[in-house]
Amino acid sequence: MALAVLAQYRMAATEHMHQVIAPSVRIERTRRLARLRTEGLVDRITLPQAGRMKV
């Protein structure tokens, strides 16, 4: 589901992903999305104009 959301929006912060895919669970579960990064399915950038937010 996370990949489908990212395919649609192209970029999202962890908090945004959490609200879309799992708002009823603790955010720590959503932070496991880092696994997608280690598998090379997603990447992360830092937005300097948004207070160095990582998306």
Rank of each mutant, 00 (worst) to 15 (best):
A7G: 13
T38V: 05
Y9G: 00
R10A: 03
L33V: 12
I45S: 06
S24P: 00
P48Y: 02
T38H: 14
M17D: 00
R52Y: 14
A22H: 03
M17V: 14
V42H: 04
V20F: 03
V42N: 06
E15K: 14
T46I: 15
T30W: 04
A7L: 13
T46V: 15
R35M: 13
P48M: 00
R10T: 05
Q19W: 01
R37I: 07
Q49M: 02
L47H: 02
H18F: 05
A7I: 00
H18I: 01
V55D: 00
L6E: 05
L33C: 12
Q8T: 12
M1V: 01
K54F: 05
Y9S: 11
Q8H: 14
M17H: 01
P48S: 01
L36C: 06
H16L: 12
I45W: 07
A13F: 03
T30Q: 09
T30I: 10
M53S: 05
L41I: 00
A50H: 13
Q19Y: 03
L47G: 00
H16Y: 06
R32G: 15
P23E: 08
T14L: 08
I27C: 00
H18Q: 08
E39Q: 13
M53Y: 03
A13P: 02
T38N: 12
L47I: 15
A13H: 04
M17G: 04
R35I: 09
I27M: 14
T38I: 04
R37D: 08
R32L: 14
G51K: 02
G51Q: 05
K54E: 11
T38M: 08
R44C: 13
V25D: 08
D43N: 15
K54D: 08
R10D: 12
D43V: 07
T14A: 10
R26M: 05
V25Y: 11
T30F: 04
E39T: 00
V20C: 02
E39N: 10
T46P: 00
T30P: 04
V25Q: 09
H18C: 00
I21D: 02
G40M: 06
